[in-house]
Computed example of a mutant assay.
Amino acid sequence: MATLTLNPDEPQKNDILNFIYNIKDKAALGAFYQLMKNQVTSKKHAATQAVADDGDSKEYILAGIKHACRDLKLIREGKVRGVEVHEFLRQFDDED
């Protein structure tokens, strides 16, 4: 079992970690994880949003490739669940 040492200089992080540790409901923990992941990744991609207006800039394309590679790595490590192709394509069929 891993051991986590809390840093007294970061009380907010310590409170968050204690809160997460005390969550017993797996569904609530999963929902909390997705919420936090979305919050963190949205801030990381805020820089690319400024360039996203044209969508053709080199920076925007490279940022998209970097994001896709990071997602693939997380999927391979089992930290994130990937979306099956038929599920992904179904969202486009539903828009019609």
Rank of each mutant, 00 (worst) to 15 (best):
K79G: 02
A46N: 08
G30T: 02
F92N: 06
A50Y: 09
N38D: 11
K43D: 10
T48L: 09
E87K: 14
E10W: 04
L62G: 03
Y33R: 08
T5N: 09
E95G: 06
C69N: 13
L29A: 13
E87R: 09
N22T: 11
L6F: 15
E77Q: 15
D56I: 12
K44C: 11
K13H: 09
K66I: 11
L62I: 04
I75N: 05
K58S: 10
L72I: 11
K66L: 15
A27Y: 05
V40N: 01
V51F: 07
T3Y: 03
Y21L: 08
L4S: 05
S42W: 04
N14L: 00
L17V: 12
P11M: 00
M1C: 10
K13C: 12
H67A: 14
G82N: 04
E95F: 14
T5E: 10
D53C: 09
Y60F: 15
D15T: 11
G64V: 06
F88L: 15
I65E: 10
T41L: 09
D54Q: 04
E87T: 10
N18V: 00
N14H: 00
A31L: 10
K37E: 07
M36Q: 06
K26I: 09
E87G: 04
E87V: 04
P8D: 00
A2G: 05
K24Y: 00
K26A: 13
A50R: 01
